[in-house]
Design a binder for these strands. Structure first.
Lengths: 351, 351
DNA sequence: GTGTACTGTGAGAACGCTCCCATGTCAAAT
DNA sequence: ATTTGACATGGGAGCGTTCTCACAGTACAC
């Protein structure tokens, strides 16, 4: 492997000049620059990342931390989409991305050690799902710069994060069902130890309140975001009398639909459904899901931008970014049946 | 940030001794070692990765390359599972993982530049899907050590890779349908420009041949691995007379099931189905899918191990690893209906 | 008592880069 | 004619490690 010195010799200049060319620093004549670039080409010179990092104290590598359970969280395209979003913001800035995945059954202490005993990254993005991961206090103490995706339940006043307006999302979903004449609207909640689950429930209650509708605790079943959870929560709900349900993820909605099918209930005629996420699953249910779209890629991109701004001192910790959500109307809510929308059927891809 | 020198001073020894302690090299007395470790603790000393890499010429970082389209390939848990597998092999060896994601519409030239102009990794794992990615020749020329996941259609005699025995897989699936008395077995193929798709088709034909059954081209529809593809391929197939179908992915099988439902055909009574992958989707169809299980995590772990062996000169390029596949019997094939298996129903998680 | 082998420790060089400072050139301003 | 300052280039120090070598001490065999 050639180094700066080799290139300098080949171009008949000094190491410093080659460095200036490589870093586009100016103060190099056009002729010299050309000669240097030619030598670089000829020798296949590539700057040594370690040497650069050593002197600049900046690696241009950021870490993405993902506890094991979260990788397979809810709709499985969540995690890839988030990474894609981070990458799209990182690439143009020449930032590389180290991935820290938790292992199944790995001690949080061990996991955090792996991450912190390794000053390899300039900062971290914690792709948490918003719960009180035991990792968080450890990171607060040991990592100078980090950003969370999703709001943690605790520490949220000391931590920088990016999240969506989940209260508003729950409200939008519920209001849409109200607008369409549903009278007994149920809610399968998300995990209530997570900020997301809590907030969406608050949104649901807010919508009912604003419409002057009574809050009936029997119509609220605590669930999670998974397919299985949706299935069993709906089984429980079937004892009640209801004509609509707001479900905290599209994947859970798939499970719930399965339970409704088994109970011979028709969607949306007997039960209208609004889901949440609008990732892979939403357009593939039968009928296609009305849902609240989460801008997952934007979340990733925003997290990266925020992290770099923190590192560069452009913003001060804690700094929070809250992204808007969007109602996507398809068939499961019973609205707009007269004017079906294009490309929102059950089979077309939603990407 | 403290460095070796600081620790040495605090412990009253030389830099060399601290280095020996940090690297567990021996030739340090127990007393000295204890004093050094205490100083390390006190100063929160963490070795500087860049400095270490600079002198050892070894970063202990490997890159995982994933072209954009592949991230969302087929069942979306494929990619996270693969990463998880790689991580599980990497963690105990203290190897970190850099993720190179292609962007949508990114020029392959640009993508490969991003990866190669950055000697940050000791080697690469190309998480391709086995097609002739234009990336491959570029990497062959520029990257000293890399391993592919899946066999590329070309270059396969010069490249190290890890794959599954897809021919055998296709054969197992088809033979299972034959054993269960099906007479007209169709096949929706995977992408035929991919080794996986090609091989599974070969397996299908081999099984028919061995059973003395005629190969009927009308029963073979070229498809892809996606949900949409499964749906439309099945729509096309419906014009034919068939009583079983082997589908190259569980996600495509979900699409095919949707088409069969719309055609009011019963599974497995009218049409028996065998899928492929056994990731997330398989256990969530109705009826649950009989399928060929792919050991995705093992593929990831094997790729990492192979890569490190190449780097360390323990094996010679090219070296190929072929992992076995396994038939998982559930309901969609119509077999074993009398003795249903535990935990293989449609709702229970398959993990 | 000398040679040999092993343990324990330290000093200096080297890895390949960036950054600071010194020096030289040349045109414009005084 | 001299000063000024922007441009162009080179040289040395330093980033924080590891690695090689040197050297002292101890133990044991002969």
């Amino acid at each position: 492997m050639s180094n700066l010195e080799d290139v300098a010799k080949a171009a008949g200049v000094s190491r410093s000049t080659v460095s200036r060319v490589m870093n586009n620093e100016g103060y190099v004549s056009a002729a010299t620059r050309a000669r240097v670039l030619e030598a670089v080409e000829q020798l296949h010179y590539i700057p040594n990342h370690a040497a650069r990092t050593l002197v600049t104290q900046r690696s241009n590598v950021i870490g993405v931390v993902m506890p094991s359970a979260n990788v397979f969280f809810g709709d499985n395209s969540y995690f890839p989409m988030l990474l894609q979003g981070i990458a799209e913001a990182a690439n143009p800035r020449d930032i590389s991305m180290i991935l820290w995945l938790g292992q199944a059954n790995e001690d949080p202490e061990h996991f955090s050690q792996r991450i912190t005993r390794n000053r390899l990254c300039d900062g971290l993005i914690i792709a948490s799902i918003g719960y009180d991961d035991p990792l968080i206090p450890r990171l607060v103490d040991n990592v100078p710069y980090f950003v969370m995706v999703e709001r943690p339940v605790q520490f949220h006043d000391r931590i920088s994060y990016v999240t969506c307006d989940n209260v508003k999302g729950g409200q939008m979903a519920t209001e849409h069902l109200i607008r369409n004449g549903r009278k007994r609207i149920a809610h399968i909640t998300g995990r209530l130890d997570l900020a997301d689950g809590q907030d969406r429930l608050v949104g649901y209650r807010t919508a009912l309140e604003r419409a002057g509708m009574a809050y009936d605790p029997d119509l609220v079943v605590e669930g999670q975001f998974s397919y299985e959870s949706g299935y069993y929560a709906m089984k429980n709900l079937l004892a009640q009398n209801f004509d609509a349900v707001f479900i905290p993820s599209d994947t859970a909605a798939r499970g719930a639909i399965r339970a409704l099918e088994e109970a011979k209930l028709r969607i949306p005629d007997d039960v209208a459904i609004v889901g949440f996420d609008d990732l892979e699953d939403a357009a593939r249910t039968n009928p296609a899901l009305t849902t609240i779209r989460q801008p997952v890629q934007q979340k990733g991109a925003a997290a990266l931008t925020l992290l770099l701004d923190l590192i560069d001192g452009k913003v001060e910790n804690p700094y929070q970014v809250i992204l808007p959500l969007q109602l996507v109307i398809r068939q499961s809510c019973g609205a707009n049946l007269s004017q079906p929308m294009q490309n929102q059927g059950g089979v077309a891809s939603n990407r």
